[in-house]
């Protein structure tokens, strides 16, 4: 546990004030990906961002990760949220280095920090066991199934002990049963480690099942349409009335946000 966060539950991890992002397309035209986004994420939250494909969700994650800079407005990261140190990003595709084994993929961040081979290996083995990949450490990414690759990618991200974990539709390409397992595992990890998660999905069900807060995103250009605090007890049951009510509300907000 990091001492600076342990006592302060309202510590701000990420704050966006009136943030806009405009790209210059290959044809030379300006494309507005994000328009005036206000969003605050606090320590320990599991924020799920739900929206249609192409509404700028990934751009928002890229801004949070420092891969791109805002063209308008302010983006502030809390103390202790440092790029390349405590912000991990799980992409949807190409989440692992194909020339490395599962073990050395997970150990990558530790290796970059100059942590000794043996210690990095021990740490990576523990993480692999934690995500249910014990015994697969010698395999290459192409030898793993889609679900196993996402498990390994999560372990790779956790290795740097992130304060903020960004995830871009990480379970978008796996079957339903595998997705349910991965979702359960992710909630467990989040509860164990006290990290903050910003999770992008286009799946309403997934957003409500995982998040402490669902941010409905509309566009293009991307903007926050509505936010829902989710205080349903975990493990959450999709068939309970409050869940299905929320589902309808989110769906309605989402439909209203489509232009």
């Amino acid at each position: 546990m990091r001492p600076e966060f342990a006592s302060d539950a309202n510590h701000t991890i990420l704050q966006l004030d009136d943030v806009g992002k405009t790209f210059r397309s290959d044809a030379g035209a300006d494309v507005t990906a994000l328009a005036s986004v206000d969003l605050t994420i606090r320590q320990g939250e599991f924020v799920t961002l739900v929206g249609a494909t192409g509404c700028g969700k990934t751009t928002l994650l890229d801004l949070a990760a420092g891969i791109t800079e805002p063209s308008a407005g302010h983006l502030r990261r809390g103390s202790g949220v440092r790029l390349g140190q405590s912000v991990a990003y799980v992409f949807q595709h190409y989440t692992l280095f194909p020339w490395r084994t599962t073990l050395t993929n997970v150990a990558f961040g530790l290796q970059m920090r100059g942590i000794g081979r043996r210690q990095a290996r021990t740490c990576a083995m523990e993480l692999l066991a934690r995500v249910g990949l014990a015994g697969f450490e010698k395999g290459r990414p192409h030898e793993l199934s889609g679900g196993m690759r996402q498990r390994a990618a999560i372990a790779q991200a956790l290795a740097i002990e992130p304060v903020l974990l960004l995830m871009d539709e990480p379970f978008g390409a796996v079957d339903d049963a595998t997705r349910a397992e991965l979702q359960r595992m992710l909630v467990d990890l989040w509860q164990d480690r006290g990290m903050t998660i910003l999770f992008v999905t286009h799946n309403i069900d997934e957003a409500i099942l995982l998040g402490t807060r669902v941010v409905v995103f509309g566009g293009p250009p991307g903007r926050v349409v509505r936010q829902f605090d989710i205080d349903l007890p975990r493990p959450r049951d999709r068939n309970m009335k409050p869940f299905t009510n929320l589902f309808l509300d989110v769906r309605q907000a989402l439909a209203g946000g489509l232009d």
Binding site: A65, F91, Y94, F108, M112, I160
Partner: peptide, 25 residues
């Protein structure tokens, strides 16, 4: 570019990106 970004977010310096991403890729 994904591999370069992945390495950068995991803390690789430009020299490490060169050695651990560009060269093996």
């Amino acid at each position: 570019r994904s591999y370069v970004l992945l390495a950068r977010t995991l803390g690789a310096s430009p020299a490490q990106v060169f050695r651990h991403v560009y060269l093996p890729a």
